[in-house]
Design a binder for these strands. Structure first.
Length: 616
DNA sequence: GAGTTTGAAACT
DNA sequence: CAGTTTCAAACTC
């Protein structure tokens, strides 16, 4: 990433002050803006602290994804600034106040780190002011600079005037709704870094992150395209939101960001992006229906849930009972592991524990970043793949699970294979089953009857299926299946790095089920968390699975994402015609599920923390 | 909600 | 590597 310092410097540094103070524009702005100069300094500090403070290594995934994104942002920032900012820099940036405002403005659209940093408190005002200023400028002043600047910036980001306009509207809405902009949200920072405790603390407030917006803007197209219907989900409201998907960092980071806003959402699901904004922005925007749908389809990251801790808990419980929630959050319930072992779903997924968790003596928190990282390293030293997605696509899989992939319906397989003795691989005790993938030769299971594919390689043939279905696919089984969906990893996180274009768009729109599940982001560690899930071609579809590119994981996808909820898979599988992809949704969910399989929940999908060690 | 079951993770 | 223990999720009642 570009050194954040630079950006900070730009933002925070009074460098421009000298000039700006003299500038008429500056004066004008000062008059308009309620913001006091005093804030600037603190803000800068905040930013630096928030954004640049040592990124939690844990979350910072070694994966390129984060970097990519960050780079991307930086680039955007630079570009924007360069192209648009010249004048602004001189005029706007100069004054402390103005500079802040300007920064915010830029950042918002651009996604600058500054914005995020600004987040704490200052951002709010700054963001709001900025918008207002823009309006004022347009109305009151003749200087076309602002307008141009803004327009250029937004357009640059969104790619089209219409979008930029939408963006502007969105911003306004936010401001109107009183949404607060939180600094914590640095997109990148957020993602990469474990959310700072401070940031987390702010959960309760709806945060609005300029960055998130930006992200959305950037990804938006994909998202929209992918998940048209989901856009409106409300993050905060959807229990499922848990999905946190955090990645890139920690899923939590995502979550944080999500809280912050939307970042999480975006990452987790492309579809969520909008939702995130809205939700985060203001519930008002979302209809409950939408929210509900969203929830079902896309589990929101727990992080998101955090936004409204109380409700989140309630939702969670409900969801848990209903099965729906599961997907949303990983909330762990660790009592002895301190959430520093793979037993802990959150830890395994590379996310920090958040409020919804019921863990005791939890160390998997940003404040214990060092411990988390150290532990993570230790675990990885023991098993480099410990945090790698558990479910991988065979063909690509870095780790070759087995040859059988071709044999089984699903291209994806559990990296290590299960060792089930009593569950017949028909319950979620089985990681393969939980991950929605068939057992492979790597499995040492006994009496395998995995609905997704048996160890012996027998596909789910219709006959078999029938048999199985007759035996297993009982109502309970179905329930289980449904439960799978929940996955949600988490967090999402996942998505962070996914190239927008690459986001799995499920044709269905859902794609993201995995994303949802991502519970982040699966492991994304944060990593990255970006999982590239893509639907394979129809051939894949035939299997009704989605391939997860494990390779990608390194780059982008949070494994979690990859793991989709088996549920979807289940459905597909269950159907007599397995080969046929019943719904796009299913497809997406199908194999990939990046869902969190965590312990019992497959976390696989989510690449948890950024793996410290190279996956291969 | 408490207790049991299960299998992964951790330990030896 | 194998056996055992620990752990927390999944499941059952």
């Amino acid at each position: 990433m570009d050194t954040p310092e630079k950006s900070i410097t730009q933002i925070g540094t009074p460098v421009s002050k000298l000039k700006s103070e003299d500038s008429p524009v500056f004066n004008y702005i000062c008059n308009l803006s309620p913001i006091k100069t005093l804030k600037s300094i603190p803000i800068a500090q905040t930013l630096s602290s928030l954004n640049f403070t040592s990124p939690p290594s844990v979350f910072t995934s070694p994966h390129a994804v984060s970097h990519k994104e960050s780079r991307f942002r930086s680039q955007i920032n630079k570009d924007v600034v360069a192209s648009v900012g010249e004048e602004v820099k001189e005029e706007a940036l100069t004054g402390n106040e103005p500079s802040q405002n300007v920064k915010n403005d830029f950042s918002t659209p651009k996604v600058s780190n500054d914005v995020r940093g600004g987040g704490n408190g200052s951002c709010e005002d700054g963001g709001m002011d900025l918008l207002k200023m823009c309006d004022n400028v347009k109305k009151k002043s003749d200087t076309p600079d602002w307008e141009t600047l803004i327009a250029a910036t937004t357009e640059l980001i969104y790619g089209s005037p219409s979008e930029s306009e939408a963006f502007s509207c969105l911003m306004k809405r936010r401001s109107n709704s009183g949404a607060r902009v939180r600094g914590g949200g640095g997109t990148k920072s957020t993602l990469e870094e474990p959310v700072s405790s401070t940031v987390v603390a702010n959960n309760e407030t709806e945060s609005f992150d300029a960055n998130s917006i930006l992200h959305r803007g950037v990804r938006r197209r994909c998202l929209d395209f992918e998940v048209p219907g989901n856009n409106q989900q409300t993050l905060g409201e959807s229990s499922s939101s848990c999905v946190v998907p955090s990645i890139g960092l920690h899923l939590n980071a995502i979550a944080m960001s999500s809280k912050d806003n939307n970042v999480a959402n975006e990452y987790s699901l492309s579809g969520n992006i909008k939702v995130g904004l809205q939700s985060s922005t203001s519930p008002v925007l979302h209809s409950q229906q939408d929210a509900g749908q969203a929830v079902e389809e896309f589990p929101i990251s727990s992080a998101l849930v955090e936004i409204n801790p109380i409700s989140a808990k309630k939702k969670r419980r409900k969801s848990e009972q209903s099965g729906e929630g599961e997907a949303s959050c990983k909330r762990c319930n660790c009592k002895k592991s301190k959430c520093l072992k793979l037993y802990c779903e959150c830890f395994a997924a590379g996310v920090y524990c958040i409020e919804p968790c019921s863990c005791i003596d939890c160390f998997n928190k940003p404040i214990h970043e060092d411990v988390v990282l150290a532990t993570r390293k230790q675990i990885e030293s023991r098993n480099p793949l410990a945090f790698a997605p558990k479910v991988i696509r065979n063909s690509d899989s870095i780790i070759e699970v087995g040859d059988d992939t071709s044999k089984t319906p699903a291209s994806a397989r559990h990296k290590r294979g299960c060792n089930c003795k009593k569950s017949n691989c028909l319950k979620k005790y089985c990681e393969c089953y939980q991950g929605g993938v068939g057992c492979s030769i790597n499995c040492r299971c006994e009496g395998c009857k995995n609905a997704f594919g048996r160890k012996d390689g027998s596909l789910f043939e219709q006959d078999e299926e029938n048999e199985v279905s007759a035996k297993r696919v009982t109502a309970k089984t179905q329930q289980n299946v449904e439960l799978f969906n929940p996955v949600v990893p988490p967090s999402t996180p996942i998505p962070f790095r996914q190239p927008l274009s690459q986001l799995p768009i499920s044709s269905n729109n859902r794609l993201l089920p995995p994303v949802e599940h991502f519970h982040h982001g699966a492991s994304g560690s944060s990593s990255s968390g970006i999982y590239n899930i893509r639907k394979q071609d129809m051939s894949m579809v035939s299997h009704s699975r989605i391939e997860i590119i494990s390779e990608d994981i390194d780059d982008d996808m949070p494994e979690n994402l990859l793991n989709h909820s088996p549920m979807t898979n289940m459905k597909a599988v269950v159907s007599p015609n397995r080969k046929r992809v019943s719904l796009p949704h299913l497809d997406s969910s199908e194999e990939t599920p990046w869902r969190r399989n965590g312990g019992r929940k497959l976390i696989h999908s989510i690449p948890t923390f950024p793996s410290l060690t190279p996956h291969h």
